[in-house]
Design a binder for these strands. Sequence first.
DNA 1: CTGTTAGCGCTTTCAT
DNA 2: ATGAAAGCGCTAACAG
Lengths: 331, 331
Amino acid sequence: MPAERKGGVTISQVAEAAGVARSSVSRAYTKPHMLSPETVDHIKAVAKRLGYVPNHTARALSTGRNGNIALIVPDVANPFFPPLIRAAQAEAERSDLCVFLGNSEEDAEKEDKLLGRLSSQVEGVVLASPRLSDERILAHASRKPMVLINRNVEGIPRVLIDSGTGVAEATRHLAELGHKRIVYVSGPSASWSNKQRRAAARKTATALGLELSVISASVPSFEAGLQAVPSILSRKATAAIAFDDVMAQGILAGLAARGVSVPADFSVVGCDDALGALMVPVLTTVSGQSAEAGKVSVSLLMQLLQSDALGDACYMLETHLIARSTTSAAP
Amino acid sequence: MPAERKGGVTISQVAEAAGVARSSVSRAYTKPHMLSPETVDHIKAVAKRLGYVPNHTARALSTGRNGNIALIVPDVANPFFPPLIRAAQAEAERSDLCVFLGNSEEDAEKEDKLLGRLSSQVEGVVLASPRLSDERILAHASRKPMVLINRNVEGIPRVLIDSGTGVAEATRHLAELGHKRIVYVSGPSASWSNKQRRAAARKTATALGLELSVISASVPSFEAGLQAVPSILSRKATAAIAFDDVMAQGILAGLAARGVSVPADFSVVGCDDALGALMVPVLTTVSGQSAEAGKVSVSLLMQLLQSDALGDACYMLETHLIARSTTSAAP
DNA sequence: CTGTTAGCGCTTTCAT
DNA sequence: ATGAAAGCGCTAACAG
């Protein structure tokens, strides 16, 4: 039994047992149309009887293609990513690819290492919300086909979730509700999305005559949101736009703990719609598209793998405000 | 440039450039102690200059070990799993393993396929909350080292989160609060955890003289929880224990929509503590341990890979009630 | 259609 | 301490 578990049946054994050449066995699996139907049947029958299973590794070494891709994310546990991962998986499966998942823990160095470690066994990689520098990203991209999610590096195919539009809508929404002072609670500084959101909030606020101040957090966590609350309150703001839903949720909790009721006394809007309608009260947020991003990214990667030249592909995904119950007229 | 991207530097090129044999280059990486320090330095220097990176696939073919493991879960997007995945990753990394992630979409057949597809390129697999039959699991386990999470199949190393104790505590908690009629909102029928939780609820309820009825749902989703609400209410129950936090959240939402206030009019408790304290009101739940399970499972797998015989390992993780704010005295 | 012959890039005895 | 040579299991020209 341990013998069966070890190694396994090889193509040669099948070939001998079937009385054909090794190449025929190989062809029976990869190019059946090149063999007579009877031969194929015969070979497959013998193979099955022997319990033959093609060795993926050997095939990969020979062909140079391993049928794997890597997906690297900053934090699997951040609810923004699971839908993305799920969709990417599904799309990969359509092309019969397996996916390595890498978790960088929001750390640029770790991301770098993962890229190095994984890239030797995949055909391409999709890098989601990288915290790495443009230089390093370019370096890796020059060695392996790569597509980026939520990072705008020219020359590398990328899918961008344009949360700028959604955040602008959110800001306008708050303005219309009569808010005058609002705060943007910032996320990771290396995050493209964060820069984009902050810029959109600032621009719109200025255009509308709102006062906007920014509070910084490095990691987008519930905790970070919670801790931002005293600072938010001290600025006499009546509404906050958070980098993402998780932080928004933390802000909600912090507000509740201080007896500030939402949305009566204070309005908050999140980003990504990662928590969906799971909460009570239901969070006003900016739509996410993370699943779509996951899907599109691997589909782009597929194209990249086939045509090599994909040009300077940049796929934009629209977002918009989803007004639910954490925003209302300014107190 | 595309030339650089193709293939890559091989051991032979390094050997030639360094004026040594291929085997020496190999040894410089895998058995440095067999070479003189100077030779190692020299080789590594040349290798670095050339941008040499050992080819994982070739090495795997030669050694028979690929340094990969597979982790298969029913649903990445279910908040129970991300922490598990994260912890498993981290533990795998400690042993310098890469992990393939498989998502079965709560579907037994898909799980079966994934297992087949992945097992040819990994050294072992950890199967979390499988929906597959014991037979199929055993079949796969006989071909590849495997450890199970939340599934009790004798002979296969497994880590079990004993939510029975926690659910019993929860039931007792409700009894003490004066609830007389409670309902257990069931999860996937193929889930070991579900059976265990239901059994614990039933047993404790009986012992305490509570009336317990069970409502079935096949997929543990927010939606499923939401849809269970009419049925729950029709049974005149005053409290519900849900298979997991996500369903509990759905129930909360359904209750809110019908104007039933929690915990004043109705109490609900979840399971897994997957949502942590992210919600308002904060969910009373049974602790989860999913991260610990992820960690322990790959650590067990490591042992299994080394010693082959691991005996009938069965690692139990304790759980207990976390009383927060969705439970209170019966109305 | 099918067999022969080289490798893919690396590890690993076996010599030296 | 280092080199030479033989594969790991499979695919891919190139012949027939």
